[in-house]
Each structure stands twice: as structure tokens, then as C-alpha cells.
């Protein structure tokens, strides 16, 4: 299983701080998440900051970043208020 941890408004809107699933890559994971809980669409989820095992997917293979058993994914939405 892959552990997904949420940070920021995702925690409030999903009413959970983490979730587990199986997914081949980040793209697949976001699709599964949007199907499991429709609060955020797949397109909206693609606007998140996403880290796989502490590394930004923009420095990996973006949404095609492969996932394997035991990986930790963090999905966060940055705050912008002051």
C-alpha cells in the first residue's frame, strides 16, 4: 500500500489526515483519490504540491512518477492569506 498524507485544506475538506491505496504512479493515485472522494476533481488535485518520499514530483517524473509498496506521498495546498 502507498500512504498518502494530506496537509492544509485537504485535511478539512477530506475530513481525514491520511489515506492508503495502491497506485502505479502519481497520475493513477490522483485519479483514484478523486474517485474515492469527489471533493476535489482530478484536475484540481493536479494543482497540489505533491512530494513522494520527501521529494517534489516536479524534480522527479512529475505525474508519471512511479510508486511502489511502502512509498509515502504528501499532498498539500499552500496557504495564501495574511
Amino acid at each position: 500500500m502507498i500512504k498518502i498524507e494530506f496537509f492544509g485544506l485537504y485535511r478539512l475538506n477530506y475530513k481525514m489526515s491520511s489515506w492508503e491505496t495502491e497506485a502505479a504512479d502519481v497520475n493513477n493515485l490522483l485519479k483514484k483519490l478523486s474517485e474515492y472522494n469527489s471533493f476535489y476533481s482530478y484536475k484540481q488535485l493536479k494543482d497540489s504540491i505533491i512530494l513522494v518520499n520527501g521529494k517534489n514530483i516536479m524534480d522527479l517524473n512529475r505525474f508519471r512518477t512511479r510508486l511502489k509498496e511502502g512509498d509515502n506521498v504528501l499532498i498539500m495546498s499552500p496557504a495564501s492569506g495574511g
Binding site: F7, G8, L9, R11, L12, S77, P78, A79, G81, G82
Partner: peptide, 10 residues
């Protein structure tokens, strides 16, 4: 830098 939204910030 600092920013807030609801219960969260960075």
C-alpha cells in the same frame, strides 16, 4: 515568508 488559510499556515 508566512501565509495562513483556515487552521493552516506555512
Amino acid at each position: 515568508h508566512g501565509a495562513i488559510n483556515a487552521y493552516f499556515g506555512q
